[in-house]
């Protein structure tokens, strides 16, 4: 059984067909990099996985269970799928520590002390445990994004979604975030990453998926994808960004 399966997923914004017949499956522990020009539907696709976006046709299965099945509690589902946004979206009124412990305490009912201990471990893992008592506005962009990753990991998710996690960062901060993501990939996390960081894709992706106009045009292991792209659109895209 695959971790995530997309069956004929279609989505429209009014008349605009954003996702067209998406069929794909992601195995447990697999790292998928999704790339493509802006407006191609990549963010929309991964946001469908935790139901931040609704789709009108088709099915998405997580470990065999339909996302929209009657037995699915959306809050429980989301708590098992972490997401990291382009704009970090940390809670500005809470300290770094509280940003991380909020969901474990409120959703999982983890005792405060345990949640804080876990948060400190996660902060250590992303390399910023000395900033626990600070507020998001006091941190750099790269540090904020690492807090956002720790916040998502605090729910011990089975899947991590990354929605252009480095696009809002200054160039010198991109690597500190990518390194955390690489560690995660090596530890066996199932990851769907929308990113333009082709170095990251080369190094840790199991497969690279190329999307345009709401369709998956091609997908291949990184070596093959970069060396021998098949589709004209892909060739053009790679020429533009590499």
């Amino acid at each position: 059984m695959s971790m995530i399966e997309f069956h004929n997923v279609n989505k429209w914004y009014g008349d605009f067909h954003v996702l067209k017949d998406i069929n794909e499956s992601v195995e447990s522990g697999e790292v998928l990099v999704i790339c493509g020009p802006s407006g191609s539907g990549k963010s929309t696709l991964i946001r469908c996985v935790n139901r931040l976006e609704e789709y009108q046709k088709g099915h998405i299965l997580i470990e065999g269970r339909d996302l929209h099945g009657d037995d699915v509690n959306v809050n429980e589902l989301r708590s098992e799928i972490g997401i990291v946004f382009q704009q970090f979206n940390l809670y500005p009124h809470l300290s770094v520590l509280k940003n991380i412990t909020l969901a474990p305490i409120k959703v999982r009912k983890t005792p405060k002390k345990d949640a804080e201990e876990m948060a400190m471990q996660l902060l250590e893992r992303v390399g910023i445990h000395s900033q626990a008592t600070k507020y998001p506005a006091e941190l750099s962009g790269g540090q904020q994004q690492r807090v956002a990753i720790a916040r998502a990991l605090a729910m011990k998710p089975k899947i991590m979604l990354f929605d252009e996690p480095t696009s809002a960062l200054d160039p010198e901060m991109i690597n500190e975030v990518l390194n955390v993501m690489k560690d995660l990939a090596r530890e066996g996390m199932t990851m769907l990453c929308v990113t333009h960081e082709m170095g990251f894709a080369r190094e840790v992706a199991d497969r690279v998926v190329f999307m345009d106009f709401g369709e998956i045009l091609e997908q291949a292991p990184p070596d093959e994808f970069f060396r021998n792209p098949k589709h004209e659109r892909t060739k053009l895209f790679l020429k533009e960004i590499l």
Binding site: N50, L52, N75, E76, R78, S79, E80, G82, I83, F85, Q87, N89, L90, Y91, L102, A103, K106, V107, R151, A152, M155
Partner: peptide, 16 residues
């Protein structure tokens, strides 16, 4: 809006 989105994405209910 992304504040509501980020918190819902962690599994918090609308009221939480």
């Amino acid at each position: 809006k992304n504040q509501l989105e980020a918190s819902r994405a962690c599994g918090l209910s609308f009221l939480q």
